[in-house]
Design a protein around this nucleic acid. Structure first.
Length: 498
RNA sequence: GCCAAGGUGGCAGAGUCCGGCCGAACGCAGCGGCCUGCAGAGCCGCCCACCGCCGGUUCAAAUCCGGCCCUUGGCUCCA
């Protein structure tokens, strides 16, 4: 079955064909590490992760590269704040560590490499030199700008005409540029206090001091720093190839960032930069998008602490990657409900498999058919531009089939249930969902203690002391332990977290 | 102003590329029943949609074409 993806470059859904039939070169525009990652980032990460997993599931060897932009005025602006660090490099490092920890907490597959701008200055300088030599860029006052008029296809990604594009970069640069739409590849000197003023928070070090920590490098044009767009071109080429199969990023980066990457890379190599441009849509808050600059974000660590990894992943894949998604307590709660349905059904099936009522000679055609159809539906959904919402529906239909089977049978279809459990686990993994609860350490101890309390409660119930039994249940409930009485005795769920 | 995406039930959100299986999925909320000491979970059934508006094409349109209205995002740092 063919995989279809929506390509921003053409604006159409097209069959996906990597250059090499066995490998996929995937580059994701990572973040500028000047703030703690928020749920908007997590949404993109999770969708890229699901793409990665699905491509692997389809048999491709995925070479996934994701950069960290660790050179930026906004990072300099944070110097000295809290315990972020005493210089641009330290602040960046602090946030990179936090970011990697957040990524782990979301159960993301690791990328092959997480290149940093500061470690690719020679490659960047080479690239800028190439552009100057080929006549696509010019030096001005120690800075180097890309001459957009020299690149005929400029605007093809964001579908804009050059004369409609307004000035890029800060006002000071404009006098140095030939065309207001030209953008900086290399910026002369370091960072000036004025450059960071708007990004500074309370408690940050004095601007002059912070700027002194800004990193600069020698270049053929004198001391300076790389411009914003050039790093992705340099790093993707270094770690992958001149032509990427898939370049992913947030919708908000289409212009100018991605447009500029296309211009730089294609001007330098003469090759198409990326065959497929995929863009993740943004979260929609009640009345505006979630963004670092608006300060209306929920950080990833807060969210994962509160809801747990599986709920977050269910939430983040509750819409297609390329559709805007509404963020609210209600929409998260709904995702939690979906996840819990899956989790409960999984548990139900596992318990049924372990019970003596499970027979290899029993066969429930409805169950087996439902599982097979769900598998089919999941595959179809994922191949249709990574339709994770539909994929979730398919998983939920397995859950319903399990419950229905358990409901109206006295003897269970062992093989059918086995297949249902395997399907939930296997397909769940593609969405990054994990059914394997923590059965070690304190979680196991907690489970034993709950078992003990439930034993006592069962005795009370047997004795007809329902009030006492309900109290025990309420107490457990208040600790987050969800108790359910079933025909085969009580079951419970510990608070979801990790 | 220019570019892009979108307007589907009370909410949320698929389906629109490739018109008919859409009398519109999945989930939440709501209603009835079963089960239960009770509750929850679960099961069965139901309710809620003239698919933004107007017009066109067609045997047939949520899906194609044209016009209009509205929303969101980008055009400045942004996943």
């Amino acid at each position: 079955m063919t995989l279809y993806v929506t390509n921003t470059l053409t604006g159409e859904k097209e069959p996906f064909e990597p250059q090499d039939p066995e490998n996929v070169l995937l580059y994701y525009c990572g973040l500028t590490v000047s703030d703690p990652p928020h749920l908007g980032h997590a949404r993109s990460w999770v969708h890229v992760d699901v793409m990665h997993r699905w491509l692997e599931y389809r048999g491709y060897d995925v070479r996934h590269v994701e950069n960290f932009t660790d050179i930026n005025e906004k990072i300099v602006a944070r110097v000295g704040e809290d315990d972020l660090g005493e210089g641009e490099a330290e602040v960046a490092e602090t946030y990179i560590e936090r970011t990697l920890a957040d990524m782990r907490s979301l159960n993301l597959l690791r990328a092959e490499v997480y290149p940093r701008v500061s470690e690719h200055i020679p490659e960047i300088i080479d690239l800028v030199e190439t552009l100057v030599e080929k006549g696509y860029a010019y030096e001005s006052n120690g800075s180097v700008y890309f001459d957009v008029s020299s690149f005929e296809e400029y605007g093809k990604l964001s579908n804009q005409e050059l004369d409609e594009i307004e000035s890029q970069g800060d006002p000071d640069e404009r006098s140095e540029k030939r065309n207001p739409a030209d953008f900086a590849l290399w910026k002369a000197d370091g960072v000036e206090p004025d450059d960071i003023e708007e990004h500074r928070h309370e408690g940050a070090a004095p601007a002059e001091h912070a700027c002194e920590t800004a990193l600069t490098w020698d270049s053929p044009w004198g001391e300076g720093r790389p411009g914003w767009h050039i790093e992705c071109s340099a790093m993707s080429t270094t770690h992958l190839d001149d032509t990427l199969d898939i370049h992913v990023g947030g919708r908000d980066l289409v212009f100018p960032h991605h447009e500029n990457e296309v211009a730089q890379s294609e001007a330098a190599t003469g090759q198409q930069f990326a065959n497929y441009w995929l863009h993740c849509e943004l979260f929609q808050m009640a009345d505006e998008k979630m963004s670092s600059s608006l300060g209306n974000f929920v950080t990833v660590d807060e969210a994962v602490d509160q809801w747990g990894t599986n709920v977050m992943r269910t939430f983040l894949t509750a819409g297609s990657y390329n559709s805007q998604q509404l963020y609210s307590d209600e929409t998260i709660a709904e995702a939690e409900e979906r996840w819990e349905q899956l989790e409960r059904a999984h548990e139900t099936a596992v318990e049924a498999l372990d019970s003596p009522a499970a027979r290899t000679k029993v066969e429930d055609g409805d169950l087996r058919t439902a599982v097979d159809e769900a598998r089919e539906a999941f595959t179809t959904a994922m191949n249709d531009d990574f339709n994770t919402r539909e994929a979730q529906s398919a998983l939920l239909s397995v859950a319903s089939a399990i419950n229905a089977h358990r409901e109206d049978r006295d003897e269970y279809d062992y093989r059918g249930l086995r297949r249902a459990v395997d399907t939930l686990e296997e397909l769940g993994t593609i969405l990054g969902l994990s059914f394997t609860g923590d059965t070690t350490g304190s979680a196991a101890l907690a489970g034993d203690v709950v078992d003990l309390v439930l034993d006592v409660r069962e005795q009370e119930r047997a004795d007809g002391n329902y009030e006492r039994a309900d109290d025990l249940r309420d107490e457990l409930e208040s600790l987050g332990v969800e108790v359910q009485d079933t025909d085969e005795g009580p079951t419970y769920r510990l608070p979801s977290g990790e």
